[in-house]
Computed example of a mutant assay.
Amino acid sequence: MSAVDSPKWWNVAVPGVAVVLALIVLFAEAPGPRVAGAIATLGALVVAWFTLGRRGCSSPDPPPPSSSSSSCSPERPSRSSPCSRSCRASAIRSSGC
Rank of each mutant, 00 (worst) to 15 (best):
M1L: 07
M1Q: 09
M1W: 07
M1S: 13
S2M: 08
V4T: 03
D5F: 11
P7L: 10
K8F: 15
W9P: 01
W9S: 00
W9H: 11
W10P: 00
W10D: 00
N11V: 03
N11Y: 01
V14H: 01
P15M: 08
P15A: 08
G16L: 04
A18S: 13
A18P: 14
V19Q: 02
V19R: 00
V19G: 01
L21I: 03
L21T: 10
L21K: 07
A22Y: 03
A22M: 02
I24C: 15
V25R: 03
L26Y: 08
L26G: 14
F27Q: 12
F27W: 09
F27T: 15
A28P: 01
E29Q: 13
A30D: 06
A30H: 07
A30C: 09
P33Q: 06
P33M: 08
R34L: 15
R34K: 12
A36I: 07
A36S: 07
A36K: 08
G37D: 04
A38H: 09
A38V: 04
I39A: 14
T41Y: 12
L42T: 04
L42I: 07
L42E: 09
G43Q: 08
G43K: 05
G43T: 11
A44T: 12
A44L: 15
A44W: 09
A44H: 01
L45V: 15
L45G: 12
V47Q: 10
V47Y: 10
W49P: 11
W49E: 11
T51M: 12
G53F: 02
R55D: 07
G56A: 14
C57F: 14
S58Y: 14
S58P: 00
S58D: 13
S58H: 13
S59I: 13
P60A: 04
P60R: 04
D61I: 06
P63A: 14
P64T: 12
P65Q: 06
P65I: 01
S69Q: 04
S69E: 06
S70L: 08
S71L: 01
C72S: 03
C72W: 02
S73K: 11
P74Q: 08
P74H: 02
P74M: 01
P74A: 06
P74S: 07
E75W: 09
E75S: 10
R76D: 14
R76T: 12
R76Y: 11
R76E: 14
R76Q: 11
P77E: 02
P77M: 01
S78T: 04
R79N: 05
S80L: 14
P82E: 08
S84M: 02
S84E: 02
S86I: 10
C87S: 08
C87I: 04
R88E: 07
R88H: 04
A89Y: 11
A89N: 13
S90C: 05
S90F: 03
A91R: 10
A91I: 00
R93L: 09
S94E: 12
S94C: 02
G96H: 08
G96C: 05
C97N: 13
C97V: 13
C97E: 14
C97K: 14
